[in-house]
Amino acid sequence: MSRQSTSSRITADSKKVNSELFVLTYGTLVQQLVKDYESVEDVNKQLERIGYNIGLRVIEDFLARTNYPRCTDLRDTAEKIQAAFKMYLNATPSLSNVTADEFSLVFESTPFGEFTELPDACANLKYCNVLPGVIRGACEMVQMDVQAYVIADTLKGDNATEIRVRFIKKLHDALPAGED
């Protein structure tokens, strides 16, 4: 087995799943959370936590596939997140309002929201709230503490879905336990 061929197989190999199946799965998950929790705020929080846990893992896969080196600045990070959305969700968000420590990812329509209509009782539900969680989790693994939140949502009548990401601080490797 030559090492060259296996490593090229990794980057080429991206198993695909039917997008409708995925959208339905996600919808069912959200709906079940809405059923299980009393307040919509709690559902938003849970979705964010689920996303965070996904982010912790998906970043490893992303780095293993792409071999990207470390980001030089936030703009670089933003572009890589954009590439990751293309890779995992086949969604192409555009970047806007990029400043030194903030940027926005703008989607034409809400990801996973293809069939969704929010009932009146869930007017405050952030349907795609896993995504900010994924971004937060993934960035944390590469030593970046960020805050991410949905600020506009097509399901609520906005023109586009927008996720705002704010850089807070750089994290440092923890010292080994018991060593000073």
């Binding site: 409708e20 959208v23 339905l24 919808g27 069912t28 959200v30 709906q31 809405v34 293809e114 069939f115 969704t116 209509e117 929010l118 009932p119 869930c122």
Partner: peptide
């Protein structure tokens, strides 16, 4: 079919959807 795919629509309930 699109309506059935909406996670918030309960199958068999009366339809109340703008789309």
């Amino acid at each position: 079919c699109d309506l059935m795919s909406n996670p918030f629509y309960l199958p068999g309930s009366s339809i109340n959807s703008k789309r």
